[in-house]
Design a protein around this nucleic acid. Structure first.
Lengths: 139, 139
DNA sequence: AATGCAAATGAGACTTATTCTCATTAAGAC
DNA sequence: GTCTTAATGAGAATAAGTCTCATTTGCATT
């Protein structure tokens, strides 16, 4: 869990307290390979035998977003889903049949986005690129 | 209003009734140059002196999405906003300061998306590309 | 180790966006 | 005009997320 202690350092540096619930949430995110939503995080805490309030999850996520520790994704018509932000930037392809999330990156798309925004007189602060698709079946 | 009658034809073809509220909603969308949300559509109906229920707006939008008459956009943390789908496909750049929505298209980005999805074994059903930015000020 | 203060938490009330229910209305076919 | 059934309005219900406030707990200081 060197990962975990790195998060703890990030919290410290932001002048935030290293509380039990925060440790727990960070541990759950670190150990989850997927993109859980707030309710799932509470469930995973419960599964570990620890009580955790939904309000705390949302509050903590807001804080951790600000410190750059987690990322929030609001996919089409569902609750927001979270993942830790320790990896390089990537976009998402959502499998419409299973709900699975596949990650991908495209420097070329990023560059095109930047160029388009600039042409319109804008500087990009944030962006969202989500593909919704179905597996191609090879019959 | 040739536009309007085109919508009416689309409804007819889908076996849907051409009701007062539906005409009204279509007229409002046709006359609106922006991307109103459901509540705004009700307000604009009221401004015309016609009562219109929020439930009807949402129901109608669902129906019109299915007939390909309108598009729904769920931008970051606000209500869904609607626009008529009679123009060519485009993506959106949202001005973080004013909330303005600027439309743009990029065939190259579209093509890159298709290629990426294919490489991952997926076929794209839908996609979302939103840029959030700020105007570049020339001092 | 004990103290004190501000930050963080939990539980539930509240807000906002959207869908559902059901009694009433009104398209449009005959 | 009548009849059938889809569509509507009004408000209840649901879902996601935020807020309030009394209580707890980090942690800096003794």
């Amino acid at each position: 869990m060197t990962d975990l202690s790195r998060y703890e350092r990030q919290l410290k540096e932001a002048g935030l307290r290293l509380t039990g619930p925060r440790r727990l949430i960070l541990r759950i995110l670190t150990e989850s390979g997927d993109h859980p939503d707030a309710a799932e995080i509470v469930q995973r805490a419960t599964a570990r035998g620890t009580r955790l309030s939904l309000a705390t999850v949302y509050r903590t996520m807001k804080v951790l977003e600000e410190t750059g520790t987690v990322e929030r994704h609001a996919f089409q018509g569902g609750p927001a889903r979270f993942e830790k932000a320790d990896r390089a930037h990537h976009d998402h392809l959502i499998d419409l049949d299973t709900g699975d999330v596949v990650e991908f990156t495209s420097p070329r798309i990023e560059e095109l986005q930047r160029a388009i925004a600039e042409e319109l007189g804008y500087e990009i602060v944030d962006h969202r690129l989500e593909l919704y698709g179905r597996k191609i079946r090879c019959e």
